[in-house]
Design a protein around this nucleic acid. Sequence first.
DNA 1: GTCTGTGTCCAAAGCGCTTTGGCTATTGTG
DNA 2: CACAATAGCCAAAGCGCTTTGGACACAGAC
Lengths: 341, 341
Amino acid sequence: MNLKELSRHLNLSPTTVSRALNGYPEVSETTRARVQAAARAMNYRPNARARGLATGRTQAIAHVIPVSRRHQMVNPIFGDFIAGAGETYARAGYDMVLSIVDDVRQDRVYRDIHARGTVDGIIVSAPAMRDPRIALLNGLGLPFVVHGRATEETAPYSWLDTNNSRSFRRATDFLLDLGHRRIALINGLEDMDFAWRRRRGFEAALIARGLAPDPRLMRAEDMTEVYGFRSARDMLRQAEPPTAFLVSSVISAIGVRRAIHDAGLDMGRDVSVITHDDDLGAFKNDQDVPIFTATRSSVRSAGERVAEMLLQLIRDPGCGPLTEMMEAELIIGASTGPAPQ
Amino acid sequence: MNLKELSRHLNLSPTTVSRALNGYPEVSETTRARVQAAARAMNYRPNARARGLATGRTQAIAHVIPVSRRHQMVNPIFGDFIAGAGETYARAGYDMVLSIVDDVRQDRVYRDIHARGTVDGIIVSAPAMRDPRIALLNGLGLPFVVHGRATEETAPYSWLDTNNSRSFRRATDFLLDLGHRRIALINGLEDMDFAWRRRRGFEAALIARGLAPDPRLMRAEDMTEVYGFRSARDMLRQAEPPTAFLVSSVISAIGVRRAIHDAGLDMGRDVSVITHDDDLGAFKNDQDVPIFTATRSSVRSAGERVAEMLLQLIRDPGCGPLTEMMEAELIIGASTGPAPQ
DNA sequence: GTCTGTGTCCAAAGCGCTTTGGCTATTGTG
DNA sequence: CACAATAGCCAAAGCGCTTTGGACACAGAC
């Protein structure tokens, strides 16, 4: 069922039918009602490609999601992030097109997306500290919003980020207040901007108390469970083991907890753990007393917000770079306690 | 840069340029080379919408991924599944368009996708036992492949599935051989076909040894960590607690492990655990001695295969319903041992 | 009675591509 | 040498929609 058939069936011109359905005023309310009824009855839906060609808009958003070259892995937080964004798109009548891509060919993918004109805007995920994508997209003139920031990028761009340095500084302060002095950082890959900021917050808190960050207590890798496990296991075997861990993801924190148990220790008493908690649907940390003390910031609602920002940017391209900072909550759970003597 | 501009720049007609780029024989090899060089130099890429309109093909595949109404959660295995499929699409020059959708409006989404003509084919995820989507899609005549099966659907359709009943039967037999008699099943939602098959395999193994499945030892919910935790915690408090758990997902198995530890018990000695392992990138269970004894089947390669099947179906619509069964491996890890006396 | 407005509708162009159906040289064949 | 075949190119139609620029009828105003 296409427009021509529908209009023939109604004894109207395609023009009138199109205007009736798209809410233009040049059509009487009685015929509009007639057209709408027929469209519904015949299950008519305008062809997306044709409409896109005619209007220049595609009603679609691209998400380019990088896959770790080391682990061939898509970060599990993307599921929740995508869910939040996808829901927003669905409400607004937009499609979401996904490109899974290893970092190597990134810029080609962005150029392609632009040249082929498949979408009206792009969400950029997991920015690095110096991220060439931002300059590239600014140059292409395609609306985009970055989830996170790229510290070394000076040109203006739209972003939404959580205050990673502040939350990790607070978490570190919390551990310091409990008397911990040997605190380990199990971080994400530090070419990622968020991971770098977290380290900065961590180090700043230590330095403010006259403590020197100890490289033997800092790791930065893809945030898998085994990564958390191995890092904690190895550190707990050191001559001067840490009494607390600050972890960048619940998933790695689970590995840390396993290492603590395997070492015959008790999490929350012998060893404290604070993790960042993206509030993933599959890993809710929100029981009466949460398992983990955590800096919590829902990545799902980040997805929603970032999508809303992009849609706004598309509707009104002049509305300038939009920026938004989310603060993480510090949630006290069962995984922290005073430093053992 | 569009075709007209490019052809003007080359002093050729759009026709010739199009044919040159698309490999038609009616153009001399020298001009073809000239055209290709210019296209590359000017970074020309045919507009996807226009090409789609002209050819009737969109070079895009839809994935409709359901979100749990209970937990507002996207199953974390989708990340890996999507990664596998996405990689295959990328290689074949296809886009992937994602719809996140709660089960209620499912059929409307499929109808929309078809009517708006945004894609050449659809992947159906997480089929229920009686799943109306299959009849619907068969009716619409849009190529599709189901990841999983719908037991009660009799019409032919293309699917790829893992042998869930067999693998859970084997896992149960393995526990029975170790002397376990009170085995708990921590399953996924049993309106999902795969969960139902797993239960069948589990029960068949018990019955074959003259044991009756005990409803107090069987749960079926969204496979979160806390679900695994709570189920195991409650069961271990029962008068006759289970000595072994069979779990449908590594994520819930992590919760089960936590409950075992919290109860002061030792996993692998006091209580055994076998989990299904989708081989998720973030939860690799493949160390020297895997943490969990598991039925392993990579959901990432399932994504790859299912995408390949759909592309084949699109290339050659006559190639009939394609079906493929993957067998899960039974991996022996540290989480199982003989039943305590 | 003419003129201007206004409310309703429509014909046709155009979005950027592919594809059908020529057209013109050039080559091969008897 | 005439004719057919072929190689190489192009004009134009068409995919399904939106949108520009009227057309027409009827109303009210002078």
